[in-house]
Amino acid sequence: MLYSSILERFNSIREREMNTLNPSIKSNQYQFYGLVTLRFLIGWHFLYEGIAKLLNPYWSSAAYLLDSKWIFSGIAKSIVSNPTLLTISDYLNMWGLTLVGISLVFGLFSRYGALVGMGLIMMYYLFAPPLVGLEYGKPNEGSYIVVNKNLIEACALWVLYVFPTSQYIGIDRFMNNETKN
């Protein structure tokens, strides 16, 4: 009873989302393909970040975690000190990044991919935010204050989540008959 009412509610939200968001993004080709390009680029970035880590037998999230500052530094430290947690963290990163990359590039469950990717990047941001007064061992490749590329990429993924394109361009197209054309 409860389950079916939740499902009903979920479906109605989904339907409303599709109806309100999709026609508008499809109406302007420049806007639409801009979003598709953004999805490909972020997907590509995630995919290589993941694969590069998978290919490097010495990669570990430990160095990043050890340099963590601000509210999550305690959690970071306990992850590093526990070999099991560290291994889990390493695998979550390597495979998380790779799978999100595949999801965005191929347009397969891309909305969820964008959501998971946003979560991952927000973690990177929160474990080491460029706030005034926090200094890190590893130098940045640019100059940041509060806002850095992680935050921007997370925000871009949020845009991809609320303006999904994979039901038009992507494997998701085959799963959504009503959105064809």
């Binding site: 590039v105 397969l108 992507g170």
Partner: peptide, 20 residues
């Protein structure tokens, strides 16, 4: 057209793999 749109990620992935 359907197929092409659905598999638009394939050439991107191909280009990626070539570089990789």
């Amino acid at each position: 057209r359907d197929l092409l749109k659905g598999l638009a990620g394939v050439p991107v992935a191909g280009f990626f793999l070539l570089n990789l």
